[in-house]
Design a protein around this nucleic acid. Sequence first.
DNA 1: CTTGCTGCAAAAGTTTTGCACACGT
DNA 2: ACGTGTGCAAAACTTTTGCAGCAAG
Lengths: 185, 185
Amino acid sequence: MLAVGPTALSVAVWGGYNTVMSKAPPAAADDQMIMPLCAIFRRFLKRQGLKFTTERALILDAVLDKPGVFEADELLQEMREADHRVSKATIYRTLKHLMEAKIISEVLIDSRQAHYRLSFGKEPKGHLVCVETNQIIEFPAAELTELRDRLCKEHGFDPVSHRFVIYGISPEAQKAEQAERDSEG
Amino acid sequence: MLAVGPTALSVAVWGGYNTVMSKAPPAAADDQMIMPLCAIFRRFLKRQGLKFTTERALILDAVLDKPGVFEADELLQEMREADHRVSKATIYRTLKHLMEAKIISEVLIDSRQAHYRLSFGKEPKGHLVCVETNQIIEFPAAELTELRDRLCKEHGFDPVSHRFVIYGISPEAQKAEQAERDSEG
DNA sequence: CTTGCTGCAAAAGTTTTGCACACGT
DNA sequence: ACGTGTGCAAAACTTTTGCAGCAAG
């Protein structure tokens, strides 16, 4: 549903990113945020003495294309389909940098695989996961930040982040189960 | 700090578990719960047409010995030290059964490795994790169950479980960081 | 030019699985 | 006896790393 596609962005960027958009505003309204993020990443990399490469920009684009939670391999697949050849290793390396730049953050959905979400400028979200279909719904969770800060204070901790995941059975899966029971007897 | 050690339990069990403690009370006070759990697991296995083996009992013992969150490999190590030789594969297979029996549950601490906790008869807990030292503190989280049920209702989900993890820097780690800064600058 | 980056393939880490043999019921 | 469980080693999977050549600043 985004009017400005990431592809458009990367084309613009490739035109001459080395002089464009050097001073990014620290934050911006939801959709507008897409342009600056590229600059923010570039600025972050420069500050660390790192380089803003074609691959890193393409990966950022792919990330911006994801509306919700995603996995490393998903990015790889989708980039391959879009004929953007990037290696697995580079994806993992770049995701790490994007986390340090606070552009994405990790979401704990299960313990076998890392899940990420675009988090820059967004408030932390909770996640409602269907255990049957793996559907993931995000919901706002401002109250949890308060709870977090209270608990950290109680234990003398310095808060860093928090994660709240609810597991349940989605309406669709409930219907499917019911149908199965009906047909079995 | 438990008066009744798991070792004592397993010895008792080995004396003749096949006739003892067949009818376990559905729940019990905190410490008393240790005995019945063995029976509950046995009953669960029988119901599934599975067998209550030496290895499974030893693993349950090892689990009961853990006060908080633990990992599969941790169990393996500690069982080896106690000279209880059980294979990695059996540990994983048994942990799966213990989860189905609702005796333990998975806790999401990070995405590389599964973490578990004894959950039978306990209310769900939240976890406060130090990102520097990996220290884990459990805290009660009854209010989250309400929040979970409310959100599930809103989305038509059937609640199954939920997890809340807070990441922060423990007082100890804060002191260490401060000391480091002092010596450097 | 200098330094960091990429891709590849191999390594590392956890969890799963196939198989021959052992054990609980 | 039957059917399941166990250990072992290999496989499967995600993530990391070493290295030779490549590209950004």
